[in-house]
Design a binder for these strands. Sequence first.
RNA 1: GGAGAGGUGGCUGAGUGGUCGAAAGCACCGGUCUUGAAAACCGGCGUAGGUUAAUAGCCUACCCAGGGUUCAAAUCCCUGCCUCUCCGCCA
Length: 425
Amino acid sequence: MLDIKLLRGDLENTAEKLLTRGVKLDKDHFIHLETQRKALQEKTQTLQAERNKKSKQIGQLKSKGENAQVVMQEVSHINAELKSAEEQLKTLQQAIHQFILEIPNIPHDSVPKGKNETDNQEIRRWGTPTTFSFEVKDHVLLGEQLKLLNNDAASKISGARFTVLHAGLARLQRALIQFMLDTHTQQHGYTETYVPYIVNAESLQGTGQLPKFAEDLFQLKAEQGFYLIPTAEVPVTNIVRDSIIAADDLPLRFVAHTPCFRSEAGSYGKDVRGLIRQHQFEKVEMVQIVTAENSYQALEELTAHAEFILQQLQLPYRVMNLCSGDIGFSAAKTYDLEVWLPGQNCYREISSCSNFENFQARRMQARWRNPDNKKPELVHTLNGSGLAVGRCLVAVMENYQTQEGYIQVPEVLKPYMGGMDKIMG
RNA sequence: GGAGAGGUGGCUGAGUGGUCGAAAGCACCGGUCUUGAAAACCGGCGUAGGUUAAUAGCCUACCCAGGGUUCAAAUCCCUGCCUCUCCGCCA
């Protein structure tokens, strides 16, 4: 959520920055709402002040045993007027709040301006695309030939965009998760965290998925308004919702493995083959809660933490600085890591690392106490996949395939595979 | 699922429908004292919004959330959420 002061005080400039995202701010609508709000608020508060004053008078008169009938009559008149003013004001304030909730974050100055993913800026590459002396298979063919990937069963059990993994492949996924969690906790200073996979609407509003992106979520048919998490970002970041954190406790670094559930509404026909885009997938997520002055340094570190996993797995990748038209709703800046997939002959997103500045913090009322002035200030929040496990599985399968159609186990995963060095079905 | 208790400022915790934005303690900040520190003493210390040149003053709202009663609600009533205790059931 943007600071409403940015809209009140610097509407033109704010609208211009949002335009780089391709979002046209309805300035006139906002001005209209604000003008009304201001007038109504002044009216309401004046009436309230009058009512309070006269009610006190009544109390004083009564305590002296005098007749308060006249004043009571006056207050009744005020109340009649006040009631409708209060109701109107409430409606207006809700409208303004809803309006602001649907405005995305302002891109940081270092974000390249552009329309869509073709304008993203490549920052660096690591490794060179794997070359093969034989014809490469994609992960689906590999998995099916080894009888380790059972999409027929998945579509019978659930439907499209689900999968069943067996034996060495299922274990490889578990190995990846363990490796990632161990690396982030032991080498990068994150606290391993286990969280609910079902969250309430407040949490989703806190991180920005609601109200605008409800159709991307699976909602449970329960009275409480429960949703399946689309990413661990939601439960993990909301740990600090409605709290004031002591300066000594910052930065907070959490890492969690969770399944993620996404409806993928509107992506029909896109990535239908294989594990790239599923309704359910595993992800290891890093979340950092930091002070405003540290957040951009934290973004670089967080990105490096995700990169380290790819480096350890010896998977070639590149780092993209997403352009203003391609960054997510809540983010001020995002680096995507794209891993090389031989089966598709291209780089594909495997991690997204973002600084949300105080956009999520304002929605969540997540603050820390600044020792300089003793005042609570909004924290900055960041998160990044470290990594998307399903896609990482794809990358390992395709990059580590052998001529015989087996999958070699990356060196760093061998301890997690009970010493197995080849997955043969 | 049944029975009960409770949700008040950064924390603990008082609060009889009217001068309660809320006692007291802790924490924190400033001061006195001290070579310095501690102790003691004195003072300060919530958040948001409006008005304003103002981080001054004044005004408004906020005692879990949402309704209601009343001239007036932290206080009374209803609903919801959450926490705790006991019993039952259960991985």
